[in-house]
Amino acid sequence: MKRNWVRAIEGLIVPIALLLFWQAVCSLGFVDPRKLPSPIAVGLRWAAYIAPEAPFDAAKDFAPTWIFSGEFFRDAMGSLWRVIAGFVVGAGLALPFGLAMGASDTMYRYLNPLLQVLRPIPPIAYIPLSILWFGLGNPPAIFLIALGAFFPVLINTIAGVRAVDSIYLRAARNLGASQMTIFRRVILPAATPYILSGVRIGIGTAFIVVIVAEMIAVNNGLGFRILEAREYFWSDKIIAGMFSIGFIGLAIDTLVNRLNAHLLRWHRGLDS
């Protein structure tokens, strides 16, 4: 196995080459800088976006909070807060429904056809209704994010419960377990690999939806910021905002993966 720093350098070669190419195209004047600003311009704009807006004032500023007082952090916190709120609502509803539909054939027969029709509707298609129902601001955004998280968690929970190997159920019944114990201590843990993969997809979807929702319904957050930048023709800020979204998305996914790896340390064939 290669050492970590060798792998890190290998992973950087292509991005750096592309950046150099991009910078060369811009420096040589092949493109209109209003349409494609140079990487240096994007970098400077990004730094300004992240940096605190006011200079440090020892009399009234507290250093750690001052460092995170820039526009970027306010936007990131705003978006993250919406993702979390929406996800908690969506997944919180999906989990009990999924467990019930997975465990009970009756529930499954009654609800699955409806689910199959609703599932292919992308959350984005609910935008007009969500504005009609909830107006502008956070409520429609959270509604859309919750929808985005709801279906992946629901579908995976149902699949996870239905896929529980019957030999575990037989072993548990043989040891004298009641239905309730079997549900809590056998079905639920046996289904966690599926549920957690639903959680991961659900958070990914929530993150996509939050950007869209911020473009239409609210006036802060990462999605709002790149739309605002377009109105001012700040193409460097648009790109800086997009990279911000990419890095935050990566950070969230890494975090969720770590959590999964810990919760599923008993599971074989873990991919990370």
Partner: peptide, 20 residues
């Protein structure tokens, strides 16, 4: 009448709970 702990069953597939 049904399964019970008075008749301990050992399966070829072990049937251990992998999360425990």
């Amino acid at each position: 009448k049904g399964p019970g702990p008075d008749r301990g069953m050992v399966f070829q597939e072990y049937a251990l709970f992998p999360w425990m």
